[in-house]
């Protein structure tokens, strides 16, 4: 995945490179600023509004880094019942991990059982459509 490049866009139908290309060093490269490690970074698209309180809305793209450890309070992509969900990752007082749509710990009944909870990756950015 490379946000800055697209094969189609670079394919000049005549097969010649733009003469300016070798001198073009680019402006701001979002890859450099938004991607810490490209081997572990993925972009996903959000469906649903349950995380709107965190500023993540339906249709937004999120940047997910698989290699970061999930810390208490961070937003993660988790696997629950075979589905990818974006949720806030919280640790209960007893240290058990839990998922919530809210920034505060969920009521006991809302807890995903740890055995059913796999963190897929940590959300580092939201590309919110304004």
């Amino acid at each position: 995945m490379d946000l800055a490049t697209s094969v189609a866009a670079e394919t000049d139908p005549r097969g010649f490179p733009s003469p300016a290309r070798d001198y073009f060093h680019g402006g701001i490269d979002l890859n450099r600023h938004l991607i810490r490690d490209r081997t572990s970074t993925f972009v996903m698209r959000v469906s649903g509004n349950s995380m709107a309180g965190t500023g993540i809305a339906d249709g937004d793209e999120i940047i997910v880094d698989r290699s970061l450890p999930p810390r208490d309070g961070c937003v993660v992509v988790a696997v629950v019942d075979g589905e990818l969900l974006v949720r806030r990752f919280l640790r209960h007082n007893d240290g058990q991990p839990a998922l919530s749509t809210e920034p505060s710990p969920p009521a006991a009944g809302q807890l995903a059982k740890p055995s059913e909870l796999t963190v897929w990756g940590v959300v580092t950015r939201c590309l919110h459509h304004v």
């Binding site: 972009v43 698209r45 469906s47 349950s50 995380m51 339906d58 793209e61 990818l84």
Partner: peptide
């Protein structure tokens, strides 16, 4: 094409 096409990104439910 989850990782190479902007229109085909993986969908994550919120």
């Amino acid at each position: 094409r989850y990782t190479t096409e902007w229109a085909e990104l993986p969908i994550v439910k919120a």
